[in-house]
């Protein structure tokens, strides 16, 4: 499946998707030492987003989140691409300062089209997302 999207940053990346249906705060919500989501009650609690294509609705919480994302990135524990339903400043800036390919506002709801484990390619430069279902 190929979907049009609005670019937040530039660049192309391909990887395995991890999908959350809840907003994410990088300060307090993600452990920069491991990339594991640590917010109690979060649908990704206890799972690592490191090296994945992270798909979630939007950002929330402290505006210091971009510092925590940057630290996770430098330690190799950040997601390698981001797809949001709707862009939010903290997540956008996190992607901008780490050159992480990121898009939002897809022509179809990414939370319905993408499942955990799907192979997803983000072309943020051209605003295109390519989804290959696992095993097909």
């Amino acid at each position: 499946m190929i979907l049009k999207a609005k670019p937040v940053t530039r660049g192309v990346v391909e990887g395995e998707a991890i999908v959350s249906h809840m907003p994410i705060s990088f300060t307090g919500g993600m452990d920069p030492e491991t990339g594991i989501i640590r917010e109690p009650g979060h649908d990704l609690e206890g799972r690592s987003v490191a090296g994945k294509i992270l798909v979630f609705p939007t950002g929330k919480g402290s505006t210091t989140g971009s510092w925590q994302f940057y630290a996770a990135f430098k330690r190799g524990h950040a997601p390698k691409g981001i797809i949001n339903v709707r862009v939010e400043g903290v997540v956008a800036v996190s992607a901008i300062i780490t050159d992480t390919p990121m898009v939002h506002d897809l022509e179809k709801d990414p939370l319905e089209c993408i499942e955990d484990g799907d192979l997803v390619k983000i072309d943020a430069t051209h605003g295109v997302v390519e989804i290959s279902k696992q095993g097909t």
């Binding site: 505006t63 210091t64 510092w67 925590q68 630290a71 990135f73 430098k74």
Partner: peptide, 15 residues
């Protein structure tokens, strides 16, 4: 500007 060391960590200082 807001951030201090607990959120910046070493990487933030380098930035």
């Amino acid at each position: 500007v807001a951030g201090n060391f607990p959120v910046l960590m070493d990487e933030g200082i380098e930035w």
